[in-house]
Design a binder for these strands. Structure first.
Lengths: 108, 108
DNA sequence: GAAATTAATCGTAATTTTGCGATGAATTTC
DNA sequence: GAAATTCATCGCAAAATTACGATTAATTTC
C-alpha cells in the first residue's frame, strides 16, 4: 500500500532519480500530508494525538497518512510510553528538497 | 480523473496553500510524469510522438500522463496539424517551484 | 476523396487510495 | 490486575490510478 506498489506501475523502466523524485512528490501529493508536514516543520516534534487534533480527518485516516509519510522516509515516529512522537526525518527531508530543487535547475 | 476528484478526499478542509502544494506534488508523483517533465525541461518543446517514443509505456498511457500534467497546469499542448506540441507551462512551473521552495523554508 | 498519420478517448481489468468505524496491542494509572 | 489511554491495524466501501488495446477524430498526403 505504498508508492512502490502503485497501480500496475512500471517503476523499473524509469531512472532511479525519477523514481526518487516521484516517491517524494507522491508522499506530498495529498493536502492532509502536506498539512502534517507543515505541522512538523513548525513544531519540531509532535505526538500523534496532537496531529490527529489538528487534521480534520479521523484518527485512523490520519494514522494512514502518517504511514505514507513514514514509508516515504520523510518522517520518523518514536514510541514514548503510550504515545508516539512524530518528527521530520531531517536528512530525508533535506534530500527530498535537494532532489526537487535539482529538478527545477534542470531547465536549459 | 484528476487531483480534485481523488478518492473521497476532503480538500475543502485544508488550506488553499496545502491544496496547491499537494496538487503540484501529486502531478509529479509518478516516475513517468517526472520523466516527461524532464524531457520538456531539456528539449524546450516536444511533439507528443517523441514523448511516447521516449517513455516506456503505451501511447494511450502516455497520453493519460500528459493529461494529468496538463490538468495540474504544469504543461501546455498546442495542436500543430496532425501533431501536438507539448511544452512546459513556464509560469505554472515556476509557481510550483516557488510553492515547494517555500515549504522547505518553513522549517523553524 | 481514399489512405495514412497522429493523438485523444473509450472500455476494461487489476490495484491503490481515501475514508471511516471497530478492534487490537501496548502501556499507564488507579 | 482492572480500567483507561493511545495509536496501529483490520475490514469495508467508494472511487481513483495505472495500464493496455481498440476506436475515434482530425488532419495530411497521395
Amino acid at each position: 500500500m505504498n508508492f512502490y506498489s502503485m497501480g500496475q506501475s512500471k517503476k523499473e523502466d524509469f531512472t532511479v532519480r525519477e523514481n526518487h523524485i516521484a516517491r517524494y512528490a507522491n508522499a506530498l501529493g495529498h493536502p492532509a500530508r502536506v498539512a502534517i508536514i507543515r505541522l512538523l516543520l513548525k513544531k519540531k516534534s509532535c505526538i500523534c494525538g496532537a496531529i490527529v487534533d489538528e487534521i480534520p480527518l479521523s484518527q485512523s485516516t490520519v494514522s494512514q497518512h502518517l504511514k505514507v509519510l513514514k514509508d516515504a522516509g520523510l518522517i520518523k515516529g518514536e514510541i514514548e510510553g503510550v504515545r508516539v512522537c512524530y518528527c521530520l526525518n531531517e536528512e530525508e527531508w533535506e534530500k527530498a528538497g535537494k532532489y526537487l530543487q535539482e529538478l527545477w535547475k534542470e531547465k536549459s
